[in-house]
Design a binder for these strands. Structure first.
Length: 569
RNA sequence: UGUCCUAUGGUGUAACUGGCAACACGUCUGAUUUUGGUUCAGAAGAGUCUAGGUUCGAGCCCUAGUAGGACAACCA
């Protein structure tokens, strides 16, 4: 190594550590397996909304393409018309776009139906596929078990001519659903169940969201995926671990179809899917939550869907950073939600506008403050961003502070307001609590305090020392708002990990608490849906699409870290 | 009574076979702070599932075991 190189390496710090897929790609690039080409693909089935697990796969596939100067295709795996809908393809495209990725081409497996059918005919001609008349149940029975070989179908030895005729008949709608199925002729005794004459085509007399009524037979995933990769020239076909046992079949179909065994072929590589504690990632279960109305829809802010997280106030960057942080490996994992929350806070801290909001109001009357006086206090919009500027916040005689910022009998380490104590109103004055006014039942109704005129923020000559600073709102100027306070949807770390219990049993009854007694700064009347704010000392909130100037509505994205909560329990 | 995959601090990911293991999250100290936020400084926490083997030398290679996961839709 030259001095030059050494210097460069020292400048850039440590060698970047690669995950096993990056190592493979770099090895392939070095061996010029596909020249300098890197082409990946993200292949969602349009039968549901994308979730955070997909975000990991998206970041991987698109990220790899970016890193290695390649491209990534978006390919909808639409081989099962009964579960797939155009609504889903639209939402998927919107979500990927929102995450900030651009696909090189938009394809559909259904684009390849003609070619796939031609290949099926070819396999029949080669004697590698046959039409089976057995029912799905019968085929299932005769498939054997992982430890016991299957039994060959009586139709396995049909002549090529008959198979060809039958396949043609299937395609032409001469048979009903389930009456016939095209099977690959491989090995009923294979220890790999997927090689025991797997189905290639089944009859489904259902309209397809793109091909309409053109077809009544549809290829199975296994007969479509590898060939689709091949057609597009995909170099690295990445999928999750459960497809590992499908890889021999992926390769088998390619082996039959490829003329030149040494020519280009795509290769499947599997990585571990994302799991996060306190959440579920199964599309089927997420669909159930929507259909059974445990949530308000796919974009309910409690859902781990991209659209739900967007509405909750997550940013694209925070999700991409999260996907980066969880890493790529083959080991099953359960990521702590704390990492996700850290990722949003990290981004939101940098970009979000600070505002005052009082979630649980307690009235404070400044007895020595003139009745009709109002002042504009200048508040910093974002201490992390000098260019964010300042804004005026109205101050007056009657204020709201947080209920929890006052305690009649405070513990030792309580730095906020208490009888006879002082506290700084941020950007305002220091006040002292002189009287606690209660109603008949003994509940605290309001606080009578005095303010120190010479303690005004920025020109404080009072010399008074305070231990705490709290936020506040002028009662006269505060705007009532609806705050949707979200908590985790499930109360169990692994809701679907209990054999004897349904995941629904762990739904958290307090996952949404609507706060309608809160007040916010009047500037928030103008908040636009998806705008991000930090309600100082409370948390990050995002305006919901239900928000209006009459009634601002915000979703809690995530609370601020709260070390006081740890101390106070 | 099968095949395949995996096994590193609480969690997740690293470590180009060769300095009793690094980074992030989390946890705990302390400092700063007109957000009990942020930031900063620091600490605790694993001897790399077990047993053998190869080697001068193994978290990395081999064998066996153990544990976890995947596979028996005409789903993807």
């Amino acid at each position: 190594m030259t001095e030059d190189h050494k210097g460069k390496q020292e400048e850039t710090g440590k060698k970047p550590s690669l995950n096993f897929i990056e190592s493979m790609i770099e090895r392939d690039l070095k061996n010029q397996l596909h020249g300098d080409k890197v082409l990946t693909r993200f292949p969602p089935e349009p039968n549901g909304y994308l979730h955070i697990g997909h975000a990991k796969a998206i970041s991987l596939n698109f990220g790899l393409a970016q890193k290695y100067n390649g491209n990534c295709n978006l390919r909808f795996d639409d081989t099962n018309p009964v579960t797939e809908e155009d609504e889903y393809v639209q939402s998927i495209k919107e979500d990927i776009n929102w995450l900030g990725f651009k696909w090189a081409n938009e394809f559909f497996a259904s684009d390849y139906f003609d070619q796939l059918y031609a290949w099926a005919v070819k396999l029949v001609e080669m004697g590698k596929a046959y039409v089976d008349d057995q029912s799905a149940e019968k085929i299932s029975e005769t498939r054997g078990t992982p430890t016991r070989p299957g039994i060959e179908s009586p139709h396995r030895t049909r002549s090529v001519e008959e198979n060809l005729r039958l396949l043609e008949g299937m395609k032409n709608g001469e048979f009903n659903d389930g009456e016939k199925v095209l099977r690959a002729k491989i090995d009923m005794a294979s220890p790999n169940m997927h090689l025991r004459d797997p189905a290639m085509y089944r009859i489904k007399k259902a309209p397809h969201h793109r091909t309409g009524n053109k077809w009544c037979i549809y290829p199975m995933y296994d007969f479509a995926h590898g060939q689709s990769d091949f057609i597009e020239g995909i170099t690295h076909s990445l999928c999750t671990l459960e497809f590992e046992v499908h890889r021999p079949l992926y390769d088998w179909f390619l082996d039959q179809i490829l003329e030149d065994k040494n020519a280009y072929r795509p290769r499947q590589t599997e990585f571990a899917r994302l799991n996060i504690n306190y959440t579920i990632m199964s599309k089927r279960k997420l669909l159930e939550l929507v259909e059974e109305e445990h949530v308000t829809g796919w974009d309910d802010p409690r859902m781990p869907t991209i659209s739900g997280m967007r509405r909750r106030g997550y940013t694209p960057l925070s999700i991409r950073n999260f996907a980066e942080k969880v890493g790529i490996a083959k080991r099953n994992n359960i990521i702590d939600v704390a990492l996700l929350e850290h990722s949003v806070r990290e981004d939101l801290n940098k970009i979000s506008q600070r505002v005052f909001a009082v979630l649980d109001p307690l009235k404070v009357i400044l007895t020595n403050y003139p009745e009709n006086k109002e002042e504009e206090m200048m508040a910093v919009n974002n201490p992390e961003d000098e260019n964010a500027g300042k804004r005026p916040v109205m101050f007056s005689r009657e204020l709201y502070i947080e209920q929890e910022d006052f305690m009649e009998n405070p513990p030792k380490k309580f730095f906020r307001l208490a009888p006879g104590g002082v506290v700084r109103l941020k950007y305002g004055y220091i006040i002292q609590c002189n009287e606690v006014v209660k109603d008949q039942s003994g509940n605290i109704k309001e606080l009578h305090c005095e303010y120190f005129p010479e303690s005004r923020s920025g020109s404080d000559t009072s010399g008074i020392k305070v231990k705490g600073t709290i936020h506040w709102l002028s009662a006269k100027h505060a705007v009532p708002a609806e705050l949707r306070m979200y908590d985790r949807l499930f109360s169990d770390e692994d809701p679907s990990g209990h054999k004897d219990k349904d995941y629904r049993e762990f739904l958290n009854p307090d996952s949404l608490i609507i706060n309608e007694k809160a007040f916010v700064e009047s500037s928030l009347r103008n908040a636009k849906p998806l705008d991000h704010f930090q309600f100082e000392r409370k948390g990050y909130f995002s305006a919901d699409h239900d928000t209006s100037s009459d009634k601002p509505v915000f979703n809690l994205t995530v609370t601020l870290r709260d070390s006081w909560a740890k101390i106070s329990g």
